[in-house]
Computed example of a mutant assay.
Amino acid sequence: MRVAIVTESFVPSANGVTTSVLRVLDHLAARGHEALVVCPGPAPERYAGFPVREVPSFSYRGFRAGMPSPTLARHLDGFAPDVLHAAAPFALGAQALMTARRRGIPTVAVFQTDVAGFARKYGLSATAPGIWRWLRTVHSHADITLAPSTATLRDLAVAGIGRTAWWGRGVDAETYHPRHRTSEEGRALRRRLLGDGRMLVGYVGRLAPEKRVERLAALPPEDVRIVVVGDGPSRDALRERLPGATFLGRLDGEELARAYAVLDAFVHTGTHETFGQTLQEAMASGVPVVAPAAGGPLDVVADGETGYLYASEDDAALAGAVRLLAADPARRARMGEAGRRRVLPRSWTALGDALLGHYAAVIDLAEARAARLVASFERPVAG
């Protein structure tokens, strides 16, 4: 199978869209398929043995955004894909879906970013209805739209976006593992971060307004030490709002896995997550999680079993959930174990195979459409 992946984000950008695209490419390579990546530049020339092609782009609030241009069509025509995968389509992905429709290429769109919700957080609430109208237009050109949570599927239905199905996110439970907590490096990191505090609470992710990391200021300083992992446009402002926190910057690989594992609790603060990949990574690391009862976390977190869900706009409820964990180390241990058991079946291999099934289904659908069209031309005219 020849798969063209057109993505609004790719390395070196670190976010949920990039992560899922990388895992899809890894799976395509492991299963022996061919792939092409088209993305905003700058980007590496290859990934997992597959060529990566850049399109013109610009920066906005720390994001690299691809601009529609004739370059995209040339890349697609040169590759001649069997199926097009549009990752979080908005601008570049919209052009890709429309181009594929004109060329009769089957398409799968993956909805990953609540763009309208982010617009509201950036003070652009008036644009949200227009954004949803645009998203309806974009996704109307896809043969199927895949969403990562039941809450997102409901949002898409309310917005009038049809032909949808669930496709979740996997987690690397071997990399994100509780063993890092008891390793020599893990124990040293924990001693350095915890100091004389009672509990180590962390956040991992992009530091941007829509993530609302400043809400960590509501946590009881007598109970916790705060650790923030990540980077982004809000970094300097957050250092001022959270003067007692330790900022580790962006981490990857084993360093990131170790940072998760040494925590006593993981707290997520944003309320517009279509999934919540960092929650899964924390759970795989054996760490209980606290997250808003909205969007993707509703599917990820078993409230009272693997952590707590709090009323999404209630900072006092957030702090109360952390206090419950601070007061009961045995509860933290139970929830951490339960969280790891919950995510162990969610491998990228299983989800990658499910995605290949969606690819095959839209290819079959396109072939059936073509056969009907041919038959309509061959049908004898009466009289």
Rank of each mutant, 00 (worst) to 15 (best):
L153Q: 01
R136H: 13
A4V: 03
R346P: 06
F50W: 01
E255L: 13
G62V: 13
R215G: 05
A126Q: 14
W167V: 12
L256C: 08
F377D: 03
S13N: 09
V3C: 04
A382Q: 13
G286D: 02
R64L: 13
V110M: 14
T107E: 06
A284R: 00
D155H: 13
G49I: 00
H141S: 12
G205R: 01
S234N: 08
T107D: 07
A188I: 11
V301N: 02
R2K: 15
E273P: 02
F266E: 01
H268F: 09
A257K: 02
A338F: 10
G78D: 08
S13Q: 14
V38S: 02
A261K: 01
V322S: 02
W348T: 00
A109I: 03
A311Y: 05
P243Q: 11
A257N: 08
V38C: 00
A265T: 11
R340M: 07
G49N: 02
S285A: 15
T152H: 07
L76N: 02
G286A: 06
E281N: 00
E273Y: 00
A86H: 05
M335D: 02
L216F: 05
D314N: 15
A317D: 12
A245F: 01
E367A: 15
P89M: 03
P44L: 04
A126P: 08
A294W: 07
H268S: 13
V138Q: 04
